[in-house]
């Protein structure tokens, strides 16, 4: 007895593989002409050996269109003379823009600024994150509530954080300046100097991301078995020694991951800088990401910005590989 096939998925593998059998089935179904070949096509496409590929295909196509293709395209552009704002067609330039970018003192200056911000911010995040993790490892009243509060900055948008801090730092109205004036008599113009502005950014970034470090470290701390602390107590270890020899080894791996991850992320810092200082005063806090944005979308030096972006991508790839290496090593350890 032949049952009409109404569902592609219900067609058995055997039937869909042998055309004869498949014809046999479909001949008895009442479908308008053309429906048959359509269904054959669907059956062919969703046959078991193809089904997996078909199901991931849309995601892959999207990935290719949205990520890989633009990536390749911009990579290509970095070897051509091209301005996005101009109607002139691209001309081949070879490594001209790479050479230009690498020999540009401005780029090195921006990288230096970025490095200063990364170093300070990541260090601060590590210290604060670690301290908070140590605090939250203990049980105390309202721990859960406090933990939730502490985690909120991480979930805010960069723009919101940027605007908050810009308002905090505002010398006339800002709460920071008002507080400073209360004690020292004069308003605080934090954003007037290079280091003041750098600290302003670092504080905002660290405020936002210390909770992330805390989460990772907390995971490490929680994984330390209690009996090791007890053993250390029986072995008369001091607080510091217990921390160094028992606690820290469990956290070290995660801390390293946090360090790398935050370094990669902070290396790309843009939004917060753009909003709080816009790179000022002068160009004192213009990070490399802000600079790329400026070159690419304000000056429309498309080729140059592509070349610079690829050099930065290379840096990030190196850091990412380091990160993955340590992730794998940690997995082996556990």
């Amino acid at each position: 007895m032949n049952k009409p096939v109404t569902n592609v998925a219900s067609a058995s593998a055997d039937l869909s593989r042998t055309p004869a059998a498949s014809n046999n089935v479909t001949d008895n179904t009442i479908t308008p002409a053309g429906g048959k070949s359509m269904r054959d096509f669907w059956q062919w496409m969703f046959s078991p050996e193809r089904r997996g590929a078909m199901l991931v295909a849309p995601a892959l196509i999207m990935l290719f269109l949205m990520n890989i293709f633009p990536l390749m395209w911009s990579f290509g552009l970095s070897f051509f003379h091209y301005k996005a704002s101009s109607i002139r067609p691209p001309r081949f330039a070879g490594f001209y823009y790479y050479e230009k970018v690498l020999t540009d003192p401005v780029v090195w200056e921006r990288l230096q600024t970025t490095a200063q911000i990364v170093a300070l911010s990541v260090l601060l995040q590590m210290v604060i994150g670690f301290a908070m993790a140590l605090m939250f490892e203990k049980k105390f009243p309202f721990r859960r509530e406090l933990l939730m509060l502490v985690l909120t900055p991480m979930m805010l948008s960069f723009v919101a954080v940027g605007v908050f801090f810009k308002l905090f730092y505002e010398p006339t109205f800002g709460i920071l300046s008002q507080g400073y004036a209360y004690f020292f008599g004069e308003p605080l113009t934090l954003l007037a100097t290079k280091w003041g502005a750098i600290w302003a950014i670092v504080i905002a970034d660290a405020w936002m991301w210390s909770p992330f470090v805390m989460l990772l470290v907390l995971a490490g701390l929680v994984s330390v078995p209690d009996y090791l602390y007890e053993a250390a107590a029986v072995d008369r270890a001091s607080w510091w020694r217990r921390f160094k020899t028992v606690t820290f080894p469990y956290v070290r791996g995660l801390l390293l991951l946090a360090l790398l991850f935050r370094t990669i992320e902070t290396f790309k810092i843009f939004d917060v800088v753009y909003i709080i200082t816009a790179g000022g005063p002068g160009t004192s806090t213009e990070t490399i990401a802000v600079y790329v944005y400026k070159v690419a979308f304000q000056f429309f030096k498309t080729s140059q910005s592509s070349a610079l972006s690829y050099i930065l991508l290379f840096v990030v790839i190196v850091l990412t590989n380091l990160y993955l290496y340590f992730v794998n090593r940690r997995n082996e350890e556990i």
Binding site: L228, E230, T245, Y250
Partner: peptide
């Protein structure tokens, strides 16, 4: 005093 734990509680990283 010293104590030997059922789990041994050896420091795994040393």
């Amino acid at each position: 005093m010293a104590m030997v734990f059922q789990t041994f509680a050896l420091y795994p990283h040393m």
